[in-house]
Each structure stands twice: as structure tokens, then as C-alpha cells.
Amino acid sequence: MTYLPNDSYDSYRSVDLEARAASASPYELVLVLMDGLLDELARARGHIEHKRYQQKGASLEKCMNILNGLNGALDEENGGEVVQGLARLYEYCIYRLSDVSVTLSLDGLDEVVNLLGTLREGWEGVSAARK
């Protein structure tokens, strides 16, 4: 089996992500971001497990940036309680990932993965219902 060098894989992922984002509805775009976030969380886990702390830091930073982007895109003026709840969830996940970065807690990382996985399922249901 042939493996792509990391730079080649990152380039492929970037092009794939750009193509998916360009053709996505707003709901599908959230799913694309959530998928990227969950993929990066899995990479962060691998970095922690293999003691690649510099890469762990970069992965967790990417995750927090995606969460900040999702949080910043919320319509707080018109979204009501749902948006407020999402904002609190995103902020909590950022807080937990900051803690994971220092403590290297896989339990903390798993908590974030489980929360976001459940949220992703909800977004998938919303996206399917809008089609």
C-alpha cells in the first residue's frame, strides 16, 4: 500500500474541502466543518497517544479555530434559545480542548468528540429535512 507524504495528503484534503464547501448549502457547510473538526480531533488523539506534542498543539488549535468559526457564524439576534445553547456548547468544547492541550487528557478529548458527534447527527437530520 502506498501512503501519500503528509504535505501531499494535506493538499488533497484542502482541495477536497474547498470543492465540498463551494457546492454546499449552509446546512451542508456546517456538516463539512463538523466532519473536518471530527477528523482533526481524531488526529489530535493520535498525536497525544504517540507523544507528538507539537502536532497535537497544531491539531487542537485547528479544532478551536473551527469551533470559533461556527460560534461566530451563529445568528444570536434571531436564533433564540437554540443559538444560545449552541454558543454555550461551542464555548465549552473550546474550554475542554484548551484543557486537553495542557493535561493531555484523552477522556476530555473523548467528551468533546462525543458531544460534537451527537451535534453533527442533529445537523445531519436538519440538512436532510431541508432537502
Rank of each mutant, 00 (worst) to 15 (best):
A21V: 10
L41H: 05
M1W: 10
E61N: 13
V30D: 01
S127R: 14
Q55C: 12
R88Q: 15
G85T: 05
Q55E: 15
S11H: 13
L106F: 06
V30L: 07
E18V: 13
L106S: 05
E91Q: 12
A42E: 12
Q84P: 00
Y12D: 06
L97H: 05
K56C: 09
E121W: 04
I94T: 09
Y90L: 00
E61F: 14
G108M: 03
Q54I: 14
L74I: 10
L89G: 00
L86S: 11
G69Y: 04
V83M: 03
L119S: 01
E61C: 12
G46A: 05
N65K: 12
L31A: 02
S127I: 03
L116R: 08
S105Q: 05
D107F: 01
K51F: 11
D39W: 07
I66V: 15
L115W: 09
D10E: 14
L67A: 01
Y3F: 10
L29Q: 11
S14W: 05
E49D: 02
L4D: 06
R120Y: 07
E81W: 06
I48N: 04
L74T: 10
S25K: 07
R88D: 12
A87H: 04
L4K: 12
K51W: 04
L119F: 01
A128S: 07
V113T: 09
S98M: 06
S14N: 08
V100H: 03
V102P: 03
S127E: 11
R13P: 04
A22L: 12
D75V: 12
V82S: 14
G117H: 00
C93M: 04
G125W: 01
D75G: 10
N6P: 06
K131N: 15
A129W: 02
Y12C: 06
G69K: 03
E61G: 02
I48K: 01
L86I: 05
S101V: 00
Y27R: 12
C63S: 09
N68Y: 08
G125I: 11
V15S: 03
N71I: 01
R20P: 08
A128R: 15
G117V: 07
N6M: 13
C63L: 11
Y12N: 08
Y95K: 10
A129K: 13
Q54W: 09
D75Q: 03
E91R: 07
L116E: 03
E77S: 11
E28N: 04
L74P: 03
C93T: 03
R88L: 15
M1F: 12
S8P: 02
K62H: 14
V100S: 00
A87R: 15
V102C: 11
R13H: 06
E49Q: 08
S14T: 11
M64L: 02
K51I: 03
R13K: 10
E76Q: 08
I48Y: 01
A24G: 06
N68H: 13
R120M: 10
D75Y: 03
R43M: 07
G108V: 01
